[in-house]
Design a protein around this nucleic acid. Structure first.
Lengths: 110, 110
DNA sequence: CGGTTATATCGTACTTCTACGAAATTCGAA
DNA sequence: TTCGAATTTCGTAGAAGTACGATATAACCG
């Protein structure tokens, strides 16, 4: 069970073209800083706040922007915990991204 | 064996940070048109040229630009075949993308 | 050779991204 | 209530992405 962050899974819109959905996740992952953030959150599956800023050679406000992009893609989410904000990766969404990618190649015979 | 396109696999630079490499592939896939192009090329594993343009509601020059982005990411490549150009998806690169993504989550216990 | 076809490249306009510092917000502590 | 800390949001500047039409290129066909 997760800590106090990682609340309700965000709604997965069923009306979206899978290619568009895949593109949205891919776009969110399309910057090295965001990949690093996601990795960081996955490695401690516990949630983390501005500790992420300390890990990256970027201004804190820039990291906050990257977090927002990831949040809006659904790949991570955060919950307020006092003064801090507790972020974590959304495993379901990441699995979905993997599934969409696998779906692309499912036509190819091995 | 592949048709007359799909030549030598492009060099995979070993000195690249995996997070940067993943971000590069993800960025290339970060537009719906490019996902559709890749799907198109995967579904007919045979190579295709400007037939792709006909599949998308975009100007031919725009599709050509998207093809260039995919080409530069290594996810597809093309080879001249007379007047036309024969494109195809690079299965190795796509597998590599899947592997990099899996690597991200390999810390998470199921 | 000149024309046609398939494709890339150029020039351009507009939008979006990336990054920063400064300011606003929100909560907990003194 | 005032202070300080953790974050987001705002404003802004420059870089990159997206799309189009027009133009260039290169190969085949007559």
């Amino acid at each position: 069970m997760s800590p106090k962050c990682c609340p309700a899974p965000p709604p997965i819109d069923p009306n979206v073209d899978p290619d568009e959905e895949l593109a949205r996740y891919a776009k969110a992952l399309g910057h090295p800083a965001r990949v690093k953030i996601l990795r960081f959150l996955l490695e401690r599956e516990d949630c983390m706040a501005g500790a992420i800023s300390g890990e990256l050679p970027l201004a804190q406000s820039t990291v906050s922007q990257h977090l927002k992009v990831l949040r809006e893609s659904g790949l991570i989410h955060g919950e307020v915990d006092g003064t801090r904000i507790c972020y974590c990766a959304d495993a379901d969404r990441i699995e979905r991204l993997q599934g969409l990618l696998d779906g692309l190649t499912s036509f190819v015979q091995a």
